[in-house]
Design a protein around this nucleic acid. Structure first.
Lengths: 150, 150
DNA sequence: GGTGAAAATTTCGAAGG
DNA sequence: CCTTCGAAATTTTCACC
């Protein structure tokens, strides 16, 4: 992964609808070598996929909630099952196991408060949890998929 | 936005590299009307952009941190300036203004602890903050851009 | 690794029900 | 609002440096 690959990644992270020729031009390459590099980045899994980003609010998903979970003590098996159950919920956009006092962090997206209540009930029904804290977002100031390539 | 548009959105959120004909087939449309619908979804801003998703770890960004900030009392102007400053930081992937005890939530991505320390210093230098709590992710269990279309 | 051009696909618009 | 058809553009492959 040299400097050109990084430029290609930076470009594709901002706009994946550009033609290979256009990207090549921006990074100083003709289309074939640029195309080969993109293929390799995809084969290597550096580029995971290409997706369309959809406006959350325009499709009626007005509420974003950050959920902190303390599970208490449980077996490996229990935790694996817990992870699978939560992962399967489509409202869960992000789900991390954490270091420190909070065991898990979720970012959850739902249409309205009633939907959140439904989700919350599903969550606490899925597993006995020691503590669940829901923090509601009032305003999305920034949200990006563009990683700062080191 | 009818059921077909929703299917198109669901499809493109999973894989935006599909041809219009392929998408049309999946939603039961020939390519021209499918193409027109996609154009309209883009024009209406329902589809915001198409991007490549890159593997964070493979490009050397191994650390994800959730940061909770309490700002204390400040003027509108101060808060606007604060929002602009934080938004401009490339390590900040998500940045929300919250309801309740925490004023802001950030998801920050950096290469290593030293980079996080640098980021943290930048953050607290940018504005006097009442409280900043950093929670470190140990494991990414789920991360998706696929919104659950209601 | 790179170039340039040909072959295969895809996009996009016109004509029409 | 959909279908079919075709020109234009793009992606992908290939021979060669």
């Amino acid at each position: 992964m040299d400097a050109i690959d990084k430029k290609i990644l930076a470009t594709l992270q901002e706009d994946a609808s550009l033609s290979v020729a256009e990207i090549g031009q921006r990074v100083g390459l003709s289309s074939t070598p640029c195309w080969k590099r993109i293929q390799k980045l995809e084969a290597d899994g550096v580029i995971q996929k290409r997706v369309a980003l959809v406006d959350q609010v325009k499709i009626g998903l007005g509420i974003t909630v950050f959920v902190s979970i303390e599970t208490g003590d449980h077996s490996q098996e229990w935790l694996a099952r817990f992870a699978d159950t939560i992962s399967a919920m489509p409202e869960v956009m992000e789900f991390y196991r954490m270091a420190g006092d909070v065991d898990y962090m979720l970012r959850v997206v739902v249409a309205d408060m009633q939907s959140y209540d439904t989700f919350y009930k599903k969550l606490i029904a899925a597993a006995p949890l020691k503590n669940v804290t829901s923090r509601f977002a009032m305003e999305k100031i920034k949200s990006t998929t563009l990683l700062p390539i080191p």
